[in-house]
Amino acid sequence: MSYIRGYDADTLREIVDARDCKERLDEIGEQRSLPALLERVWLLKVLDRLDEALVISEQSVRVARMAGTRKDLLRSRILHASVLHVRGAYAAAEQELTMCADEAEGQNWSGIAAFAYQHRGKVYFDTEEFDLARTDFKRALFLRQDAGARDDQLESTLLAIDAADRRRVRTTVAG
């Protein structure tokens, strides 16, 4: 079940039904499996419970390091970086996402690389580096297409490209 109802065209943040997300969070409870930890991180992030999301995301990275695959570790690190981003730690998020994107591309893991580029593009978007954001979103789109991503993933990336273009034009006209 997808909890995402859409994306805010101005902020690129997920639009979710908070009640559904809270119910799912309650269902997961204190489960310690990596999938449960990752889901908890995301739910806490979209519910704007960022302190809790940070703690659980750090735990998910540790669990992935000890018991997961390299792909699991990359997914955990990307999600952790997305929490750092939303908390305003842009430089740390950008650095972590860059390392994850490079590693994923080096392994030819298109879907994971796209995930990293999409999130790094959002960091650039929030720091008003719209050309860099657009470049990352375009790279994410290419990689998602290459990986055979679902339509909703492609649509979110197309929305992000459009938003970066609009903001870029707005900034150029205002400047």
Rank of each mutant, 00 (worst) to 15 (best):
R150K: 15
T171D: 14
L132T: 10
D10L: 12
S60T: 01
E155M: 13
L12F: 02
G6C: 05
D131S: 11
T69K: 03
V123C: 11
E52L: 15
L74G: 01
A116F: 13
I161E: 06
A160G: 10
R49F: 14
V123I: 09
Y124G: 00
Q107S: 05
Y117F: 14
E30M: 01
R40A: 00
R32C: 04
Q107T: 01
L43C: 05
G175C: 00
A81G: 03
R139A: 12
G106M: 02
A89M: 11
Q31E: 13
G106Q: 04
L74Y: 06
R168K: 10
A36V: 02
E58P: 00
R40G: 00
A140N: 10
K22G: 14
R139W: 08
L141I: 06
D162Q: 15
L158D: 15
R87N: 10
R75F: 00
M66W: 14
T135D: 12
G88M: 04
A116I: 08
L47C: 09
H85V: 05
R134H: 01
Y124W: 06
T171Q: 12
E103M: 13
L158V: 10
L143W: 04
K22T: 13
E39V: 06
S76A: 15
R13E: 14
E129R: 14
A163N: 03
A64L: 08
L79V: 08
F142I: 15
A36F: 02
D126H: 10
L43I: 04
L143T: 04
C100M: 11
V123S: 11
I56D: 01
G6D: 09
L132W: 09
R168V: 02
T127D: 04
F137S: 02
S110Y: 07
L37H: 01
D51M: 01
V86R: 14
D162C: 07
I56Q: 01
V46H: 04
N108S: 09
D48Y: 12
H85Q: 14
A18M: 07
R70E: 14
D126A: 08
V16P: 04
G29Y: 07
R65I: 01
E58D: 05
D8T: 00
Q145R: 15
D162F: 07
F142G: 08
W109Q: 12
A36H: 00
V173K: 06
V169F: 02
R134N: 06
L154N: 08
E23Q: 14
D48E: 11
Q95G: 07
D10I: 05
E58V: 10
G6I: 09
A67I: 06
Y3F: 14
L44I: 03
V169T: 05
V63I: 04
I78K: 07
A114W: 02
A149G: 09
K45F: 05
D26M: 12
D20K: 11
A67G: 06
G6P: 11
L37E: 00
T11Q: 01
